[in-house]
Design a protein around this nucleic acid. Structure first.
Lengths: 294, 294
DNA sequence: TATTGTATTTCATCATGAGAGAATACAATC
DNA sequence: GATTGTATTCTCTCATGATGAAATACAATA
């Protein structure tokens, strides 16, 4: 079967989004050149993406005239991370937590164990070492940083976020995108309404992460934003497996929504205080089943 | 001539340090096994390092008994960074600032321009992208992040540090190593006494960086420490070339030493306020010749 | 028995080349 | 003249093998 490259799939998704945003109707012709320019790539992968959409019956080729929109595509749901390495980061962190990986290890061990090629392993290890989860041994080999999974790290993480997140809201450059705010409210409301399943924990985590990262981004300070992204990435490793009780989910969403309400009213000082309280409270929840929401 | 590997050189340095710390005297025998264990490597590179020290006339081989210390080695001065990639990071950042590199570029361009092999370029670009200085374009190629060198980034950096550094001193886990404190005082005093040359700016920067990083490390919070290391690394790129007037150096050192004095007395609250003031003041110094001390 | 000496195995890096696919240039068509 | 169609060039990723060096095992020696 026909298989588009990763880039082409990404572009196809983005083209669908553009079609929706531009409000194009059936019968419209898509222009390769302008798409290529908007997407910041050359025409070649755009052609591939269009061909892919043609396979899906969304577009039809009009020889020498371009691609015609023959069906309105539905928005693909929140884009699953297109980053295949990410999966291995999570996997390796999990296996280490379960003590299935030794503290010291070599690249080839990882290659063999997970069936990866060397470049992939090197990329993954390099990212893990940026996160200070692993480090090179002086000679050959790598080792997991001692204490990357101890409880102290958790406390330090919360204390770090307590310094940054509430203050980020008070930055003079703070500016919140109203669209983002509405989207966030909707996602939180959805979470509260939908029947809760234990398997939702990844989605719940990602919503949480998006909430905190969005606020950090709105601060207008790239370093605040970057620090919170970093924290989210670390938390992602330890939390994907966790199960949250629904009660905790409810409390969490309510607190988030309250903060969003005050931000909508422009009362940033209140929002900042509530965010601080929210983090403090989350840092204290530690029962085995609800180890770390927030 | 005989050329030890990088690891062997490192180990030789560390062995010299151990000899000094242990207070070994001429005639002592060095044990390969225990050295290997202390240095966390196998015996092989330790042998290489010992051989290297033998070449320097510090050790002498006693067949089947080991290496005997025949001369007390002098401590090597503050170890120059053993990281060869680092040099290229700085170089590339500088060339971009001078507009000698285009915003968009490919790996091969870098390989050709600097005469590097591909793995090196990939490592360097990967590190630059962790620092959010460059990013991959969607198709082939890389580009410098717009605004990585604009003045806004500088302001954001100071505001970020203002959130973190003064609070770090107040963390309940804060604990300062008295040895570090003395060492810092000495370095600052030295800087004030020595005749000032424009070429000292790298040494001055590194002393500054060590000061701020040391305080962050003392906070006992790994994320605070890591964030400040990150900031130092970014600042390193833009500041290695800068010339500081001596007046600014004097003010800077005095402010640092005052902070150290209060920390020595255990008055962390005062130190924290002074540090905040110090950062605020530094963020306002912007004349062309003193663009960014602090 | 502990330590050094020696040999073997394993590891990671780099060089090289092939292949997939993106960028680019030019021809064809409306 | 603008846009699509087609061919060519360039870039990056991956697989493979060679090399240098670290890890490991075992022998020799005090």
């Amino acid at each position: 079967m026909y298989q588009p490259s990763r880039l082409q799939q990404d572009l196809a998704d983005r083209i669908v989004r553009l079609v929706n945003e531009d409000g194009l109707q059936v019968g419209a012709l898509l222009n390769e050149n302008s798409l290529a320019k908007r997407l910041e790539v050359s025409r070649t992968p755009v052609r591939g993406a269009l061909q892919y959409l043609e396979h899906q019956g969304i577009l039809a080729r009009r020889p020498n005239r371009g691609m015609e929109l023959v069906a309105l595509p539905e928005q693909t749901p929140a884009v699953a991370t297109t980053d295949t390495d990410e999966k291995w980061l999570v996997q390796i962190a999990r296996d280490r937590r379960k003590d299935e990986l030794p503290q010291d290890f070599s690249e080839v061990e990882i290659m063999r164990r997970y069936g990866l090629n060397r470049p992939t392993v090197q990329r993954v290890l390099s990212r893990l070492s940026d996160l200070e989860m692993v480090e090179r041994k002086p000679g050959y080999g790598w080792r997991f940083v001692t204490g990357f999974r101890d409880p102290a790290a958790r406390d330090e993480s919360y204390r770090f976020r307590l310094l940054i997140e509430p203050m980020g809201i008070l930055e003079p450059t703070f500016q919140l995108d109203p669209q983002w705010l509405e989207e966030m409210r909707r996602r939180h409301a959805d979470t509260l309404e939908r029947p809760w399943q234990d398997t939702s924990s990844i989605a719940f985590f990602e919503m949480n992460a998006a909430f905190h990262e969005g606020l950090a981004a709105a601060s207008g300070n790239r370093f605040i934003h970057s620090a919170i992204r970093h924290q989210n990435q670390l938390r992602r490793f330890s939390q994907y497996d966790w199960k949250f009780g629904f009660e905790r989910v409810v409390v969490n969403c309510r607190e988030h929504m309250e903060i969003l309400d005050y931000l909508a009213k422009g009362e940033r000082d209140v929002a900042s205080v509530l965010l601080r309280r929210h983090l403090e409270r989350a840092s204290q929840v530690r029962s085995r089943d609800n180890p770390d929401p927030g």
